[in-house]
Design a protein around this nucleic acid. Sequence first.
DNA 1: ACAATAGTGTCTGTTAGACACTATGCC
DNA 2: GGCATAGTGTCTAACAGACACTATTGT
Lengths: 229, 229
Amino acid sequence: MSRPPPIVCTVDVVLLTLRDDALHVALLERDRDPFKGALALPGGYIHAQEDRSAVDAALRMLREKTGVAGPYLEQLATFAGPERDPRGWSVSIAYVALVAAASLRPAEDDGRIAVRPVQRLAGLPFDHKSIVDAAVARVRSKSQYSSLPAHLCGDAFTLPQLQAVYEAVLGEPINKVSFRRKVQELGMLEPIEGGLEVGRANRPAQLYRLRRAFRRSLSVLERGLGSRG
Amino acid sequence: MSRPPPIVCTVDVVLLTLRDDALHVALLERDRDPFKGALALPGGYIHAQEDRSAVDAALRMLREKTGVAGPYLEQLATFAGPERDPRGWSVSIAYVALVAAASLRPAEDDGRIAVRPVQRLAGLPFDHKSIVDAAVARVRSKSQYSSLPAHLCGDAFTLPQLQAVYEAVLGEPINKVSFRRKVQELGMLEPIEGGLEVGRANRPAQLYRLRRAFRRSLSVLERGLGSRG
DNA sequence: ACAATAGTGTCTGTTAGACACTATGCC
DNA sequence: GGCATAGTGTCTAACAGACACTATTGT
């Protein structure tokens, strides 16, 4: 009765990025059974000796398996039950991480990860499809009223670029004036002095970056973009 | 490397109710070490043989330890780390449950539970204070744009009563007209035919109940009550 | 000059809150 | 009738979206 039951406890990370105006998820080929050889979410056992927290474990998975360091990261939900893993009752603490597309290139070129669109995902082992779906839903929902999509951009970006990211995530066009009002209200950006996008045959756009305070956290609005989604 | 680490895996429930216009949490006296005798959240080990999921485990805790059956229940977050439990690295999947105050009376009268205001909580063992704080924050946040507070009411209630519940949870007065517009928009209520609140020296109020579809789920608005929180 | 996109000013429809009014019970 | 609270009509201020205009680059 007072002896802990034999429950497997893991952390899985849904690492999302934007490519070709569509959300993509980073997957790894499993190197052991069950589902050896299948593409699955980066994840693994918590190391009680090493990890100081669950977030810590998630960051370790990302670092070791995908080379990604210091991304935006938040806990998604915990998936648990006797059916989700053929080895028996298991618990997976799932996290969502967002990175700029460029951050995934090295690991992808090395063949260490595969990047797949979140639509048309099939054949994922365990309940990883459900976990990805939950992550995408969370990201879409939070994008309506927070600075979250900015974490899909690189270090410097223009407002039109940021708007395109919001539109890709939300899946609908946004009014330019409203968008800029909201970004102003969010107050998470600072202009880069003298930084302009160059090389195109039009008026260059001002470059911005995330303010230090919002590099790994969010700015949130009372009322979001008025999407009727 | 492939052997699961010795991690304790538990479920804890923050069972909230409204009393005297203030959120209260249900606590149990711990009957064993660590923290024997202290008031703590209802919780315990997942029973791999018995529980079909984490929600299932949470419902079992509630039923066995507080007598509460069929409340509104949602996953809150998972708290994990080496410090939160003196026995070592532990994982607690935390849930929030809401019930009408009357539902707690039997267990409270039997001395099986203690009901305490969520403000002025002190001396909780483990990281239970943090868990309660997170639960309260979640409830307040979600109350701004959903039918969640209705689960703190009994089976039948009037709109003025429901508004008082929202105001107690949100901690600020709400405009009557706006409130009724939002409730209408949420569409989670149905009037009880011929049901009127009686016995008071004024015009009686119409009684409502939650529509069947919303008995254990939420109705959500695009834009919430315009609180400037 | 022209093409193309960045960025802004302004108008209008929608929505939320204030206020006041009517409705209906008990005494 | 008077009191108290339920429930509604309506005005106004705030806000979001549409539109059009100006700004600034490369060619």
